[in-house]
Design a protein around this nucleic acid. Sequence first.
DNA 1: ACCTGAACACCGTTCAAGT
DNA 2: ACCTGAACACCGTTCAAGT
Lengths: 230, 230
Amino acid sequence: MSPRRVPVSRRDRPAKPPLSRAGAVAVAVQIMREEGLERVTMRRLASELDTGPASLYVYVQNMAELHGAILDELLADLRRPDPAVSGEGWRGTLIGLLTDYTRVLLGQPSLARSVLALRPSGPNYVHLVDALLGLLHAGGVPVAQAAWGVDLLLQHATATAAEQGVRSEAVDAQDEQDAFVEALHDAGDEDCPNIARARDELFSGTGEQRLSWMFDVLITGVSTVAVPAS
Amino acid sequence: MSPRRVPVSRRDRPAKPPLSRAGAVAVAVQIMREEGLERVTMRRLASELDTGPASLYVYVQNMAELHGAILDELLADLRRPDPAVSGEGWRGTLIGLLTDYTRVLLGQPSLARSVLALRPSGPNYVHLVDALLGLLHAGGVPVAQAAWGVDLLLQHATATAAEQGVRSEAVDAQDEQDAFVEALHDAGDEDCPNIARARDELFSGTGEQRLSWMFDVLITGVSTVAVPAS
DNA sequence: ACCTGAACACCGTTCAAGT
DNA sequence: ACCTGAACACCGTTCAAGT
């Protein structure tokens, strides 16, 4: 019978730590940061943890849950605004926090797309929701509007990251943009008179200008439009 | 040498039509309608067309382009509003058109998610953009705001479909929703005072009520907030 | 109870070779 | 020019079997 060689094989690798959900997620984040979410496969993650893919299913139910856990890990970096803010400052702070959230996801557009299909429920996400509600409250937005508004604001931020991020990263992003510009240009002035009129404005502004205008639009609407009586 | 049996093998299947991009897209839509977008794989589509997967790359560059073509096919069903509408009617018509677009994608949430990573440029999408611009124009919205607003409105509609659709379809949608409700409930009242205050409102209303409120918010904001001077 | 090897049932895309 | 068989390089998830 072959003798137990555990000590020897242990010396081969630094120190295989015991598996844990937190450890697996941390390694997943590391792979994502270095190579992108596409490379974070169950097989790759498992091999990084010196095990087989089946072992991961002890800690996560499936790929979607892993993506949710990764998101929450990233949100830990978000600085929660000082709850003492109030008065005139709330709007700028709110836009700042939303922009920070968007920036986190802009770096990982495919995570953003994955998150859209999720109902994130990690602690850091919950804290983000709380912070957003607090800022809207500080701005005097009625609680019902604030509650529905947070959904809208976060959805918009996530969707923007999914959309813009992919564009700047994808190989054929420029092709696609070109195709769209061309399609709009080819649209005859008689067939599409409204596009003809807006031609100059459709692609104006920087991404940053558009994003902050959109947040402005959202916040203005949320604080203006009443929720239907329940 | 084996004789040419082309006529015989032709009798085996009804009448294999010659391949074409339009034909391939039509079959892709059919598979999607019957079995969902997940089943629309290059391999499956090819076998439905009696060929190998490589042949499809003569007509589409990749999977993303196929999804774009499928979207445009679906948008053909959208009824363009009468350009004669104006005055008070524009807002209702606008919400109606956006709701129709959303409904098309709500039936296929994974297509919605795919579309978020795209810059659709098919003729039907271009016509939709034109119609939306026309309605905003009829409502007296300045052209610059309308141009940026269309992006926002379509992005929101697409994201909503991606989000809601998946929820109602996914196997563990209820699990996820439960997890979120529980996470919000577990959030201590001291740790998350704003969630505590909004607890009753966070999940109030039907999906339909929320969607139309959100469109209302968007349209109000778009017609109110000026675009930065270029 | 916790873990995992091996298998199941697939993918998108490329490319050399055919017609 | 147009088309395709076969291969390349992978996937997520399950489950029977080990410890």
